[in-house]
Design a binder for these strands. Sequence first.
DNA 1: AGATCTAATGTTAGTGACTATCATTAGAGG
DNA 2: CCTCTAATGATAGTCACTAACATTAGATCT
Lengths: 173, 173
Amino acid sequence: MQEAALQLFDERGYDATSVAAIAVHAGVTEMTFFRHFGTKDAVLMSDPYDPLIADGIARQPSDLAAIAATIAGIRGALAKVPLAATVIIRRRLRIVARTPSLAGAMARNNVATEAAISDALVSRGVNRADARIAAAAALGALNAALLDWVDGDDDDLGAAIERALRVVEGSRG
Amino acid sequence: MQEAALQLFDERGYDATSVAAIAVHAGVTEMTFFRHFGTKDAVLMSDPYDPLIADGIARQPSDLAAIAATIAGIRGALAKVPLAATVIIRRRLRIVARTPSLAGAMARNNVATEAAISDALVSRGVNRADARIAAAAALGALNAALLDWVDGDDDDLGAAIERALRVVEGSRG
DNA sequence: AGATCTAATGTTAGTGACTATCATTAGAGG
DNA sequence: CCTCTAATGATAGTCACTAACATTAGATCT
């Protein structure tokens, strides 16, 4: 069912693929699709890395500024995502990158990650407002880098992430 | 018509307000609404500040890093948005902040601003990828600060923006 | 004034993502 | 073999949006 959807998205594009078509292609009914995924875009959105990142941030020395701790935490957490995972991530992200109407789903997806990051920062003594800002900035950079990554030739996810973090650090001069 | 929509959004919430209801309340037909706004969320999304920001970035000394130039440019451009404008911005943003399903519209709205910023950076010699990352990071921070601002007591938009920029600069240590 | 031309509006009908409700079936446990 | 539950199906409805065509109101020209 997941596979049926991805296949059709690849062939015809996301917007041109109706849920009805996915259901037929998977040999089920439309209702069943919605019972499993809730929404059409849920097929593309799953992201088990929030706890990893939160943990990475919690592990940082407590004298770092909010944004610096966030960057270091992300770096530590995502440095070695297994290669097999990056292949799947890339397939889904490629569809997202090609589809403007999915910007919303991605944004909503980020809310959870943002909350995880800012919670981790708050528990380190950063105030709520600053924590949210730091989380949003880091995630914004990360997403931009990922969307760029899926269109390039380089398979190395780690390098793409590193690039995003370095740019944010660049305000250092 | 714009006013009719905002009024209903305030009273019942965005999701609970159908376009049909807005149309009736404004004394027109649904079709007319869509001819004017295109989408339901377009009522809330208008944002004439992109050129200002791009200009502010172009004005920065050319030895600054991408993110530093972006921050300085935003600071220069938005420092003195007239108070009258902030009142309108706040009313609309308050609805957006309360409505998760508008995250998508906001994200799509940001794409234009992101492009304006990253174009300005590219024309200063920054490469595309880094420019997009810097733009996304700065905008992420800015948005988080704005969404926080609308829920607080402080009317000062300038202070909210300044806070966002300071957090991003915080990676300096 | 009267004919005309255009832009804004209305009407109708349809698509596609969902949701609610109720009926059906299939498999697990007794 | 019966029953009870969980997954699926069928039907109908809502809401955002689109396409096609009809209608009206005002400005322009003669």
